[in-house]
Amino acid sequence: MPSNVCAVFCTDGRGKNPTQAGRDAVTRASFGCRPMTCTSRYSVRSQAMYCSEKSLSLAYRVLQRTKGSEEHRYFMWNVETQAKLQEGPTCGLVALSLAADQAMNRRQVTSEFIKFSDDLDCVELLRQARQRGYTKEGEMFSAHQLAKLATDYYKCQADVTSFSPENPKEIVSGLLDQDMYVIPYDRDKNNEPCLMGGHQAHWAVLTGFVTPIVIESPSLFQKTLYPNLFTCISDDSKIIKENLNSFLSVDPERIFFYARHGMSRHLALWPYSILKASNENLYEVDPSRAAQNDKFILPPENELKSCLCSKLLRLSKKQ
Rank of each mutant, 00 (worst) to 15 (best):
M76L: 15
Q178L: 13
D159P: 00
G174H: 00
L98F: 08
E166V: 08
T19I: 07
V5D: 00
R127D: 10
L96I: 00
Y154F: 13
R130D: 00
P89G: 12
Q47K: 11
C6Q: 02
F209R: 02
T81E: 06
I114A: 06
F256S: 09
N293E: 14
R289T: 13
C156K: 01
I255R: 00
R45K: 14
K305C: 13
Y226G: 02
S69F: 13
Y74P: 04
M1V: 15
K276D: 03
N279H: 09
L98G: 01
S111I: 00
Q178N: 14
L244H: 07
L146C: 11
T27F: 09
T81L: 13
V210L: 08
G138F: 05
A290E: 09
Y42V: 00
E87G: 05
N105G: 06
A201S: 15
I297Y: 04
S264F: 04
A100C: 08
V214C: 01
E280S: 13
M104Y: 10
Q145I: 04
D12G: 12
C232R: 02
Q108H: 04
N293F: 09
K241L: 13
L176D: 06
I213A: 05
L313R: 06
P35H: 05
S310L: 05
S57R: 06
Q178T: 13
S55K: 07
Y226T: 13
L125T: 12
E70T: 11
P218C: 12
D235M: 12
Q200D: 11
L56E: 03
K136T: 05
L220I: 13
A95T: 09
R132F: 03
S57I: 01
K238W: 14
N302L: 08
K169P: 02
C38G: 00
Q128I: 15
L120Y: 03
Q292L: 15
A25C: 10
E124S: 01
R127F: 02
Y258D: 07
Q102F: 13
E70I: 05
F209G: 05
D152E: 15
V205L: 10
F113S: 08
Q178K: 07
Q222C: 03
S43I: 01
